[in-house]
């Protein structure tokens, strides 16, 4: 029983947390790709930037959340989304738009975005310092321990306040995006441009407007993902290093250009990572007494050590590119 709870805590909850963050991150990458046709490497740093904006605002107004009884970081999130969206639009105007106007190849855009990544990272580091900082500047991180109503269940299911916000906001973001893309005039125009930019133009759709709208959404989503990740652990200026590979893996697994594929891909990669580092011995413990001596279980039965977690998305990425380059949902082949 307790082993089962352990599984819930370490796989189900941990996997959903990681999966949600990768999912929202991958949606951003996939949206940029479907509208502008390049792999945007600076996306993970936009996530970091969003979290950093929350940190700044929460440091400036540490008690803003007390009034309504939610963490200050959550109160500041909408503002940080606006700021990150503005940053995304600004970066596009300053760096990507001139490249587009020259009609450069996608690879040039990709390299441009690598430059933006380095620049953003340096900029954030300049102001934030290099250490980790909690987004809970002046509040306490609530931890909920839910005891299970079973005989002999000593270990509680543990879920933290930021994780609950993470699940709720992921759901809101996904539903919101779905409604936007399927119901609104601009959302449909985004899908139209993703399908066929020339025909979109011939229909009178102003593609510059669509590009700007895309960056606003991408910036907003990046801020959500970065903030929720930083609330769950801590804010670090080099967050993006650990995010870049898994979110690209997630976007590709889901089929590039498919927002909902990206969400599925995010959870696939998130759970794969969690399952790969999970110590399976825990689940086998109840049986270990009945095993013959020569079959004694080693103390660690994880597929890979935690410190090698990053190889998991890499492996998935390679496997997908070899066996199904268009992803789970048929995406555009890059």
């Amino acid at each position: 029983m307790n082993e089962f709870v352990f599984f819930i805590n370490n796989v189900l909850i941990a996997g959903s947390v990681t999966g949600s963050i990768y999912a929202i991150g991958a949606v951003g990458v996939t949206l940029v790709f479907s509208i502008m046709r390049f792999a945007h490497f600076a996306h993970a740093d936009m996530m970091t930037f969003g979290a950093f904006m929350v940190l700044l605002l929460a440091t400036l107004f540490p008690h803003a959340g007390d009034v309504i009884g939610v963490p200050t970081a959550i109160v500041m999130l909408p503002l940080a989304m606006v700021l990150t969206a503005a940053l995304a639009v600004g970066i596009d105007k300053a760096f990507y738009k001139p490249l587009r106007a020259h009609g450069v190849k996608p690879i040039v855009m990709v390299i441009g975005s690598l430059g933006v990544t380095l620049m953003l990272q340096g900029l954030i580091r300049l102001f934030s310092g290099t250490g980790g900082q909690s987004l809970y500047v002046d509040d306490r991180k609530e931890i909920f321990r839910l005891a299970l109503p079973f005989e002999g269940a000593r270990v509680p299911v543990v879920i933290t306040e930021p994780q609950i916000y993470l699940f709720v906001l992921t759901l809101v973001a996904v539903i919101g995006l779905q409604l936007f893309l399927s119901r609104t005039r601009l959302g449909k125009a985004m899908r139209a441009m993703s399908d066929n930019p020339d025909l979109a133009r011939a229909s009178g759709i102003n593609t510059n407007t669509i590009v700007a709208v895309t960056w606003v959404i991408v910036g907003g989503l990046a801020a959500i993902a970065g903030t929720l990740l930083s609330m769950d652990v801590t804010f670090k200026p080099d967050l993006s290093f650990h995010l870049l590979l898994p979110i690209f893996a997630a976007a590709i697994v889901g089929g590039v250009g498919h927002p909902f594929g990206a969400i599925a891909g995010g959870f696939v990669v998130g759970f794969a990572e969690t399952l790969a580092v999970f110590n399976w011995r825990v689940l086998l413990r109840p049986f270990s007494d009945s095993l013959p001596e020569w079959l004694a279980l080693p103390s660690n039965l994880a597929f890979v050590g935690t410190e090698y977690k990053i190889v998991v998305p890499f492996f998935i990425l390679v496997a997908i590119l070899v066996w199904r380059p268009t992803g789970i949902f048929k995406g555009k082949v890059i």
């Binding site: 449909k188 125009a189 899908r191 139209a192 009178g204 759709i205």
Partner: peptide, 21 residues
């Protein structure tokens, strides 16, 4: 246009709506 003259992943109705964008 001669080729690629619909939005393949959009529904017929959405295609038409885009015409009246």
């Amino acid at each position: 246009p001669q080729e690629h003259n619909v939005f393949p992943s959009l529904t017929v109705k959405e295609n038409l709506e885009m015409g009246a964008f």
